[in-house]
Amino acid sequence: MSEIGYVRGDATAPQGKGVKLITHVCNDRGGWGKGFVLALSRRWPEPEAAYRRWHRERAGNDFGLGAVQYVQVGPYLWVANMIGQRGTRTGGKGVPVRYDAIDRALASVAERAAGLDASVHMPRIGCGLAGGEWSVVEPLIAERLLTRGIAVTVYDIDGSDGPDGS
């Protein structure tokens, strides 16, 4: 089994050759406006538009914790909007991250990445605004992706203070 590659850089500009799948965690409330999603929106309008439509039409689709929406943003580049956090704020019920939802979403990402013969690229998902711990998320990535031989690169922004580059 290979290891996760850690690099300094921008996850919206993934390194390497071949098909790439950028994964990130979204909330289950339809909010898009802080954290990594802002970097995505600066580069491509499609992931935000698709996520907002997915949420708006949720009565007739699979929108919810653990679901994943795939948005093609280039000939060899996809974005995976993974629903892995409940709401957007830390409060009486703890942090927004939902590890079981991230795990289910990563299982879907593994299937899609294998089908596309794609590498997977991400910030430290679930560990910024969602409040998660990388020591919990990293083994999920290893189990769902690395065991299947899928290359994974995690990006940390230069000069960042937070684990997700924020």
Rank of each mutant, 00 (worst) to 15 (best):
D28C: 12
G84Y: 00
L145I: 05
V79G: 00
G92M: 15
L38W: 11
V154W: 04
R148D: 12
G115M: 05
T12K: 02
L77T: 03
A59G: 09
V71N: 07
W134I: 03
P96K: 06
I141C: 00
K34W: 12
P96I: 02
A50L: 12
I125H: 05
I150W: 10
L77H: 00
A105I: 03
G115C: 13
L145E: 01
G30T: 10
P123E: 07
A11G: 08
T23F: 13
Q85D: 06
D10M: 03
D100A: 11
W134Y: 10
G66C: 12
L21Y: 05
R89V: 15
I141T: 06
Q15N: 14
K17H: 13
G115K: 06
W44Q: 12
P47S: 12
K17P: 09
G91E: 02
T12N: 07
D161M: 15
V7L: 12
E111R: 15
C127A: 07
V71K: 08
R52T: 07
E111W: 11
L145Q: 01
P163K: 09
A80T: 01
G74E: 02
A110D: 03
R58G: 02
S135F: 00
V25H: 04
G5H: 15
Y51V: 08
R29K: 13
Y76K: 06
G9E: 08
A11E: 01
W32Q: 03
W78S: 03
G30C: 09
T12F: 00
T12R: 04
E48H: 15
G18R: 04
L145F: 07
Y76P: 00
G91M: 12
R144Q: 11
R58N: 04
R52G: 00
G35V: 03
A107L: 07
V97L: 15
D28F: 08
I102E: 04
H24D: 11
Y99L: 07
T88C: 06
P75G: 02
R8F: 14
A67N: 12
L40E: 02
Q72Y: 13
T90G: 11
D161Q: 14
